[in-house]
C-alpha cells in the first residue's frame, strides 16, 4: 500500500476515505435505538392495557424492563468497545455519557420521584428523550433521528393536553416515531453500506 509518489488530489482523497472509513466503524447499526424503542413500546403498551383494565396496583410493573435493558446495554457496549478494542472518540464519548446520564436519571425519576412529578412525568420523559435523540441525530448527521427527536418533542408537549390514562399510549407512539423507525432505517442503511 505504501508509495510515495501520490498526487495532492490522491492525498486528499485518501484522507477523506480513511476518515470516512473510521467514522463508518463508529456508526451505530441502529441496534440500540431499535432495542430501546421495542422495550419502551412493550412497557408503555402493557401499562396502557393494565390501566384500561383498572389494575392500578400493578400497572407500573412493566417498568422493571428498563433496568434489565440498561444491564443489556452495558454488556453490549462493553463487548463492542472493550473486547473488540474499538477506539473511543470525542463525539462517541459525549453521546455515551449523555445517554447514560439521561437513562439513569429517567429511571431514578420514574422509580423514586413519580409521585412528585405526578401527571407531568410522561411529558417530561418524552421531552428529555427527544433532547437526546435530536442531539444524537445532529452529531451523526442522520435526519430520521433528528426528525424523530423533533416529533417526540412535539408529542411530549402535546401530552400535557391529554388525560394521564392516555400517557402510556402516547409514549408507545413516541417510541415508534423516535426510536423504532429511525433504528430500522439506520440498520438498513448500515446493511446497504456493508454490501
Amino acid at each position: 500500500m505504501d508509495k510515495s509518489s501520490i498526487s495532492p488530489e490522491e492525498s486528499f482523497q485518501l484522507i477523506a476515505k480513511t476518515i470516512q472509513e473510521t467514522k463508518k466503524r463508529f456508526e451505530d447499526n441502529g441496534h440500540l435505538f431499535l432495542f430501546w424503542g421495542l422495550i419502551m413500546f412493550v412497557v408503555c403498551l402493557s401499562q396502557f392495557v393494565l390501566i384500561q383494565l383498572e389494575l392500578y396496583s400493578i400497572h407500573w410493573y412493566p417498568n422493571f424492563l428498563y433496568p434489565l435493558g440498561a444491564i443489556y446495554t452495558f454488556f453490549y457496549a462493553f463487548n463492542k468497545y472493550k473486547k473488540k478494542k474499538m477506539p473511543s472518540n470525542l463525539i462517541g464519548n459525549i453521546l455515551a455519557s449523555l445517554g447514560w446520564m439521561l437513562g439513569l436519571n429517567l429511571m431514578i425519576l420514574g422509580f423514586f420521584f413519580s409521585n412528585k412529578l405526578g401527571e407531568a412525568i410522561a411529558p417530561v420523559f418524552l421531552i428529555f428523550m427527544a433532547f437526546f435523540i435530536c442531539i444524537s441525530g445532529v452529531t451523526v448527521k442522520y435526519r430520521p433521528l433528528i426528525w424523530g427527536g423533533i416529533l417526540l418533542n412535539l408529542i411530549g408537549l402535546a401530552a400535557f393536553y391529554f388525560e394521564w390514562q392516555y400517557h402510556s399510549l402516547i409514549m408507545a407512539v413516541g417510541s415508534v416515531v423516535a426510536l423504532i423507525i429511525p433504528g430500522i432505517l439506520l440498520n438498513n442503511k448500515r446493511k446497504r453500506a456493508d454490501v
Binding site: D2, I6, T18, T22, S88
Partner: peptide
C-alpha cells in the same frame, strides 16, 4: 506524504487512541 502513514495519521486524528488491530482492519 506516503499512503499508509497518511492513512494511519488520518485515523488517529479522529480517535483518542487506536489499537494496532484497529489500524490494520481499517487500512
Amino acid at each position: 506524504h506516503s499512503q499508509l502513514r497518511l492513512s494511519i495519521v488520518s485515523i488517529l486524528m479522529t480517535v483518542d487512541e487506536a489499537s494496532f488491530s484497529f489500524i490494520r482492519d481499517t487500512t
